[in-house]
Amino acid sequence: MTYKILCKCPVCSSKLKVTRLKCDECGTVVENYFELSKFDYLNSEQLYFIEVFLKSRGNIKDVEKELGISYPTVRAKLDEVITSLGYTVTKQKPSVDKKDVIDMLEKGEITADEALIMLNGK
């Protein structure tokens, strides 16, 4: 069984450094300081979200369908991942096509509250 690499100290939560790598085939060991990517610090839920987001080519409607979550939830999860990667999330009013929002509301894909959020850009 393999485990995801620990990235934070279980005692003090500081970032851990990778210092040793070993080949399972020949037993070669390499010791040095190795960098982890920003993505190594994401939890499994965040990594799965990113996988779905990329597979959907950034299409939020497809992410909504696959994960069974609402538009505002997709945006919130995306903001969480962006923050976890060390970037600042700037709240922008998304350019939303009002007709699309009304269509989604009529089809029952979103609630009236979600439609208001989308239209008001909150």
Rank of each mutant, 00 (worst) to 15 (best):
Y71M: 15
Y71D: 10
V74Q: 14
R75V: 15
R75W: 15
R75P: 13
A76C: 03
A76W: 05
A76L: 06
K77W: 03
K77I: 01
K77S: 04
K77V: 01
L78Q: 07
L78S: 05
L78T: 01
D79Y: 06
D79A: 10
D79K: 06
E80T: 14
E80A: 14
V81R: 03
V81M: 01
V81S: 00
I82H: 07
I82Y: 08
I82K: 12
T83E: 14
T83N: 12
T83F: 11
S84I: 05
S84C: 06
S84W: 04
S84P: 04
S84F: 04
L85W: 12
L85D: 11
L85S: 12
L85Y: 12
G86K: 04
Y87V: 10
Y87A: 11
T88C: 03
T88G: 04
T88F: 06
T88D: 04
V89Q: 07
V89T: 11
T90V: 15
T90I: 15
T90Y: 14
T90R: 14
T90W: 12
K91R: 15
K91G: 09
K91M: 13
Q92R: 09
K93Q: 10
K93A: 09
K93L: 09
K93N: 09
P94L: 08
P94D: 04
P94I: 07
P94N: 08
S95Y: 12
S95W: 06
V96L: 04
V96P: 02
V96H: 02
V96Q: 01
D97V: 00
D97Y: 00
D97M: 01
K98G: 03
K99M: 11
K99N: 13
K99D: 13
D100Q: 11
D100W: 07
D100Y: 07
D100P: 01
V101A: 11
V101F: 09
V101I: 12
V101L: 10
V101D: 06
I102T: 14
I102R: 14
I102F: 14
I102S: 13
D103N: 14
D103C: 07
M104W: 14
M104V: 09
M104K: 14
L105M: 07
L105D: 02
E106F: 07
E106V: 12
E106Q: 12
E106R: 13
K107S: 06
K107W: 03
K107E: 10
G108T: 01
G108F: 00
G108Y: 03
G108A: 01
G108C: 03
E109M: 12
E109R: 10
E109V: 12
E109Q: 13
I110K: 05
I110C: 09
I110D: 04
I110A: 06
I110R: 03
I110F: 07
T111P: 00
T111D: 00
T111L: 02
A112E: 12
A112W: 02
A112T: 09
D113A: 11
D113I: 08
E114P: 00
A115T: 00
A115D: 01
L116G: 05
L116K: 08
I117N: 02
L119T: 05
L119A: 08
L119Q: 04
L119C: 09
